[in-house]
Structures are given as C-alpha cells and as structure tokens.
C-alpha cells in the first residue's frame, strides 16, 4: 500500500458517491483518472485489503432485534474443526477464535447469532449444539442490551469535511 492507496481508502471509507460514475468522481477528487481508480480498487480487492464491496446493513433496522454473542470453552485441539462447523450454519453471522483470559474468561470460540427475538436465537443455539455435538461444552449467551455506537471503522484520516453517507459497520 502506498500513499495514494491510503488517500483512496480515506476517500471511499464513508461510502461510494451515489452518482452514475462514482469512480470517476472519486478520481476527480484525488487527481486520478477513472481507469486508475478502478485499477487500484481491483488491486486492493485482489490483495485482500478490501474484503467486500457492497451494502452494509443495520441489523436492528432490518428487524433483527436480538443479537447474541455466544462464547464457548472448547479444547484447543478441537477449536478449528468446531469453528469451521459452526460458521457453516446459516444463522451464524460471525465466528472467531479468540484468546482465553484466565481465570476470568475461559471462552475461546465466539460466534454471533442475530434473530428476530431472543426465543428464535435460543432455538438456533439449541440446534447448533445438537448439530455440532457440543452438549458437553461450557458456553454462555451474551445478549446485547443496548447499542451505544455503531459507526464504521476508520482506517485513514478522512480528507473530506462532510461524509457522503452515514458511517456504519
């Protein structure tokens, strides 16, 4: 990544302009041609710096009112296989292995489940336990109570005074 890539990232991190030729608009702000912007964005996608390009939804506004982080204390030898199994289930929206924080926090596998309400999330968890054979694995369900802040991660200082779109994650 070079300085120009950083400026490009800063330019689009708040969202693509909602105009017919958004990449040309971005290029005009950066002193680049439309082709140069397209080539750089494709390169950032190829090297994985941009992992996805598209719409980012707000779960709550879409009717997903219950959001649970489910944490599991899985033997280190099994965590990779179980994480892979969990992440294949369509109601699991994120799945990560994270470090334990002993003695306070023994859990090393985290998954997120969003549902219309708490009961439907709990039903998903029961099904997940049966499907992945986790009957003897200690776990906890951390429902969210309140969302204080949900704005986009910023990876570069914004060059624009006013973001074109609302920030979000």
């Amino acid at each position: 990544m070079n300085e120009l890539d950083r400026r490009l990232i800063a330019e689009i991190q708040c969202g693509l302009p909602l105009v017919s030729r958004p990449y040309a608009r971005i290029g005009a702000r950066l002193g680049l041609s439309e082709d140069e912007v397209l080539a750089r964005i494709r390169a950032l996608q190829e090297n994985g710096a941009i992992k996805r390009f598209g719409v980012i939804v707000r779960h709550h506004e879409l009717g997903y009112h219950a959001n649970a982080m489910v944490v599991w204390d899985v033997a280190d030898a099994d965590v990779h296989a179980i994480g892979a199994q969990m992440s294949a289930l369509d109601y699991v929206t994120l799945c990560y292995r994270r470090p334990r924080q002993l003695p306070d926090w023994p859990y090393n596998l985290f998954c997120m489940i969003h549902g219309q309400d708490r009961d439907s999330v709990l039903a998903n968890i029961a099904e997940l336990i049966a499907r992945c054979h986790l009957e003897n694995i200690p776990y906890q369900v951390l429902f969210s109570r309140r969302r204080f802040k949900q704005c986009g991660a910023r990876y570069a200082p914004s060059t624009d005074a006013g973001p074109l779109q609302r920030m979000g994650t």
């Binding site: 964005i41 992992k51 980012i56 939804v57 609302r166 979000g168 994650t169």
Partner: peptide, 10 residues
C-alpha cells in the same frame, strides 16, 4: 437500514 455503501476493509 443501510449503514453504509462501499468497501469493507481488512
């Protein structure tokens, strides 16, 4: 409903 329209960075 959409929080943003654009890239998700790694």
């Amino acid at each position: 409903i959409l929080s943003r329209f654009g890239p998700m960075y790694h």
